[in-house]
Amino acid sequence: MPLDLNKIALENWRNDPNVAVEIAKRIQTTSWAESPFEALLGKGYDRGLKVHIVEGMNPFRPRLRPKLTGDGVEGNADFETNLDNFEILSQTMFPKLFGNSVKSEVKQYQSLKEIDFLHEATESLKTWVRESRDNHISTALFNDCTNVVVCDVANGFKDTATKASVQDCTRELVKGDVCNVKAIKRAIFMARTGERFNGEKAFPIKPLRAERKNNNGLQARVYNYAILLDSYAAAQLREDFEWKELQKMDKRGELNNLFTGFLGVIDGCPVIEIGNWSLTQSGLVSSEVSDEKYRKNICTENHKKITPPSYYNDTTPYGMGFLVGACGLIIGGSKTPKFYIDDKQDIGRKTICGIDNILSIAKGRFEATQGTPNIYADTDFAVIGIAHSKE
């Protein structure tokens, strides 16, 4: 959507520092509104993309409080006889400063031309902010998956019970292994039961929470996961007979007003088309994204291991979709970016507009603060990959 600057007195930017502040706020709001990841965004523990506001560049530690698992006490027993284990999980994240700028042509000192440049510059920088941030979200989702479902042309999904790693699973992918309903249902089942790709038990993934109102105005809570697919997987899914049958029973409109623009629903989980990352747009990572480009768009400090596209499969073109639950992704950043206007360039003949933003993005991968081993250690907290051939 276009950036709305109508109520900002752009012509007063030299004398009013609030002009640049208001532009930055509009860029932040509009860039998120245009992002396909916006539906997952929030500060609560039930959001797929959990936000932490940070103002400085110091490392920060987002925390997670798992549920209590003790039996408690009964009757006249003292609390001290059976204290529960109160554990706080956390991970360390390292913010980085991201910025970009554009320079005008030689100006003729006409106010109309200057304002036109401000309009065009802010629109372009808004798009850059969104695409840069979306690409960092995509690389974080894609990086070092610890659980995966691999699509299969014959059975819907491959039997990976004997595989030792996710990489071993994804390298089984061949042409014809397209995305389908069975594979997505398999990922949902694994999330709900806490099952890994090799059949080992881990922990159930906490679902997202969406709130809606029924026809009587009473509020109900709907619990589910989000399924994120690129455009190739979405097209493959539309050709699946089971998918076509499922959508005949799908309830849309106000019943799913949190998730806008989704393809449909599988087992109560909305399927959202994110698009494909290319030279001209942001989207989910596929084998077509070069390893070099991938490394330039990931916060390397937030990941112990970097797995570029060639890591999962270097012989078969493929894409990767994702099941995302609560706290699947963690994002830390400043509340709003900073916007700059400088008309002193080239001895005053040109103007530069720039923007920078503090940002840190990673998958939720929490560990116990006490240092004791736990089932969450070095494991994606709420993300399961869905690998498919790209065709």
Rank of each mutant, 00 (worst) to 15 (best):
S104T: 11
P66S: 07
L49E: 08
G99C: 06
G70A: 12
K50G: 06
D84A: 09
M57G: 12
P66E: 05
G70V: 03
L49V: 12
R63K: 15
E87W: 01
Q108A: 10
I88C: 02
P59S: 08
Q110F: 07
H52V: 07
K107T: 08
E74Y: 15
K107V: 02
G56N: 13
L49D: 01
V106A: 10
R65T: 14
G72L: 06
S111T: 06
E80T: 10
F98G: 12
P66K: 07
P62Y: 00
V54N: 03
N85V: 02
E87N: 10
K96I: 10
G48P: 14
I53Y: 15
F79K: 05
R65D: 04
Q91W: 01
L112D: 15
V54F: 04
V54S: 01
K67E: 14
L49H: 08
G56C: 01
F60L: 03
Q91A: 01
F117S: 03
L112V: 08
E87I: 02
D78V: 00
M57C: 02
V106P: 06
K113C: 02
R61T: 12
G99N: 10
D78G: 04
N85Y: 05
K103I: 12
I115H: 02
T69L: 13
G99Y: 13
V73A: 02
L97F: 03
N58I: 06
T92C: 02
Q108I: 12
E74P: 00
L97N: 15
D78R: 08
M93E: 09
V51Y: 13
P59Y: 05
V51H: 13
N100G: 13
L83V: 04
Y109R: 13
T81N: 12
N58M: 11
V73H: 11
M57Q: 07
P59M: 00
T81Q: 08
R61W: 15
E87Q: 11
S90Q: 11
L83Q: 09
S111D: 06
G99K: 11
E87A: 09
G70Q: 08
M57I: 06
P95Q: 02
R63N: 11
K113G: 10
F117N: 01
Q108F: 13
E74F: 12
S111Q: 09
N76P: 08
Q91D: 00
L112H: 04
S111R: 10
L97I: 11
L112F: 05
Q91N: 03
Y109T: 05
N76W: 01
N58P: 00
D84C: 02
F86P: 07
V51A: 10
K67D: 14
E74N: 14
D116W: 02
V54C: 00
G70C: 12
F98T: 13
K103R: 09
Q108K: 15
R65W: 10
F98W: 12
N76I: 04
Q110L: 06
K107G: 03
F117M: 07
F98V: 11
L89Y: 09
I88Y: 06
F86R: 14
T69I: 11
L68I: 15
S101R: 07
G99L: 06
P62M: 05
L64V: 10
